Amino acid sequence: MKKRELNSLRKKLKVTGNHVVFSLVFLVLGYIIAFSYHLTQSDAEKAAITGKQWERDIELRNQLVGLEEKNRALQKEVYEKQERVREIEKEMSQEAQVYFNLAEDAEKYRMYLGKVKVKGQGVEVTLSDGDYNPNEVNVNNYIVHEHHVFKVINELYISGAQAIAINGQRLSHNSYILCNGPVIEIDGYQHPAPFVISAIGDTDVLASALNLTGGVKDSLVNENIQFTLEKKAEIMMEPLLGS
């Protein structure tokens, strides 16, 4: 009886021991499987996150490249517009110079035409009849004629005179001078001797031209005309009235 009970107890202990071993094996196996699954999930999540970050980095890099290209295009456009602005400024500067020159020319022509009042340095030439000579039969040989006045006027214009007046009457581009007995007629107005010819221009140049040896002064003096020349720091001439 005791032997039978002992065998039965051995069988029970054997079965119980096998159960414990199997339980331990399954427990370890389950832990390994769970750990492996957790590790796999973690790696998958990391891989997923890394992939998203990569895609995000690529997207940001592409946006940056696009912005840089757009910035370069805008800079190029700015440079082109700045160059155009410089060209326009240069053109305007040239146009301003052209307009300035035109304004100067217009003022010069107005002055030559006698349309504006002028003032400047110049010379005054006085032509007077020669002293009476009882031995001279022809009185015309010692009085001032229009050709004497023309000699002075022509020399003054050739020497750069900008405006000329005779006895205060300003000459225009189409003025005429006639001799009418003891007087000369300028554009219909009569003037007696002496004749004061005023000219605005470079004082030294005008005076030198008139005083040249064998020039206008010597020619007039040889024809018994009294010739005096005076330099003026300022001469003023009023504009011509009428047509």
Rank of each mutant, 00 (worst) to 15 (best):
A48Q: 04
L206W: 01
D131F: 10
K108Q: 12
N133G: 06
C179V: 06
Q121F: 05
N180T: 04
R84I: 05
Y31Q: 13
Q94T: 15
V221A: 03
S42Y: 11
F150R: 09
Y112W: 13
V183L: 10
V25S: 07
M111P: 04
V216T: 02
M1K: 09
A165Q: 03
E91P: 06
Q162P: 05
L113M: 12
N18V: 03
G160F: 03
I177T: 02
Q63H: 08
I225H: 06
L127M: 06
Q169F: 11
N138Q: 09
N174L: 12
I225E: 01
G215E: 06
G188P: 06
A103M: 14
V183P: 01
D204M: 10
A165T: 00
V137E: 06
E45C: 05
E104K: 14
Y99F: 11
G51M: 10
S42E: 15
K12Y: 13
L6H: 14
I200G: 00
R170N: 01
E124N: 08
K117C: 04
A207T: 04
S23E: 11
T50H: 14
E136S: 11
G30D: 07
E146G: 00
P182S: 07
N211V: 01
L9F: 08
E107H: 09
A48R: 09
Y189G: 00
V116D: 11
Q162S: 07
V216P: 00
H19W: 09
L178K: 13
S42G: 05
A44K: 08
